[in-house]
Amino acid sequence: MMTTSLRLRAGLVSLVLLAAFLGIWHLATRSTAQVTTMSPEYAKLMGLTATQGKSAMPGPLDVGAKLWEHLKRPFYDNGPNDKGLGIQLGYSIARVGTGYLLAVLVAIPLGFLIGMSPLLSKALDPFIQVLKPISPLAWMPLALYTIKDSSISAIFVIFICSIWPMLLNTVFGVATVRKEWINVARTLEVGTVRRAFTVILPAAAPTILTGMRISIGIAWLVIVAAEMLVGGTGIGYFVWNEWNNLSITNVIIAILLIGIVGMLLDQILARFTRMVTFPE
C-alpha cells in the first residue's frame, strides 16, 4: 500500500520534471530573432535561422518529429552514409556483444584459476595492475596495425575494456568464498571440479555478475568512442557523421538512444544478478 503510493507519487514527479524540461527546452529554442527581408535565392542559402529567426538548436518538437521518422523506418539502407538507426544500433550491439562475450569466456575461467591459486594471483597481479588503467582506446592503433581490420579492432577494444572488471571481480569472489563452505565440501570429500561448480561458483556468482554488470556499462561507453574512430557503421559513427552533416537533431536522437540501450543492457545484467543472489 505504502510502496504503491510512493511509486505513484515518484512517477508523477518524474513526469512533471520531464514536462518542465521539455517546456524550458521548447521556450529556449523558439523563434525569436528578427526576420530580415532578402532575396529568395539568398534566403535559400542562409537557411531558416536567418530567414525565419529559427534557433540553430532544434526544439523538442523537431526532435520528436525526426525521431518518429526514424522509428517508422529503422532499418533502411541507402548506402554507406545513410542507414536506419536500427541498423546502426544493431552494428554497435553486435560489436559490444561479441567483444563482451569473448571477455566473459576469458575472464571467468581465468579469474577462477587466479582466485583459487595464491601463486598465480601474486604472479599475475603486477600485469593486471598495469594493464587495467590503460584507456581502451589507447589500444586502438596497435589493434589496427596488428589486426588490419577496423571492425575487428573495435571488437578487440571492447574485449580489452570489459575484461578487467569481470576478471577482478571473479578473482575476488572466488578467493573470498567462506572457508566454512569450502570445509563442508572438503569433509564431504567433494572433488576439485565438483567443488568449483557446486560451492565456489554459486558462492562467487553474485560478485562475478556484479563485475559483468560493470563491464557491460563500460563496453557500451567505449563502443561510441571506438566507432567514432574506426568509422563505417555503428551508433558512434552515426553521431560523428551527423555532426559532420550539422544535423544536431540526429545527434540528440542518437544520444537519447545510446542512453536507452545502455539502460536496457544494465537492466538485463541486473536481472541476472538478482537471479544468482542468495540471502544469508
Binding site: E180, W181, N183, L188, E189, P202, F278, P279
Partner: peptide, 28 residues
Amino acid sequence: GTSLDRAVIFQSHALLPWRTVLGNVAYA
C-alpha cells in the same frame, strides 16, 4: 585428510545459503 566417515557439525552451521534444506542434506 577428510573422510565421509567423520562428519563435522560446524559452530556456524555452514549451510549453503543458495540451497534449500533438502538441497543441503541431499548435497551430502
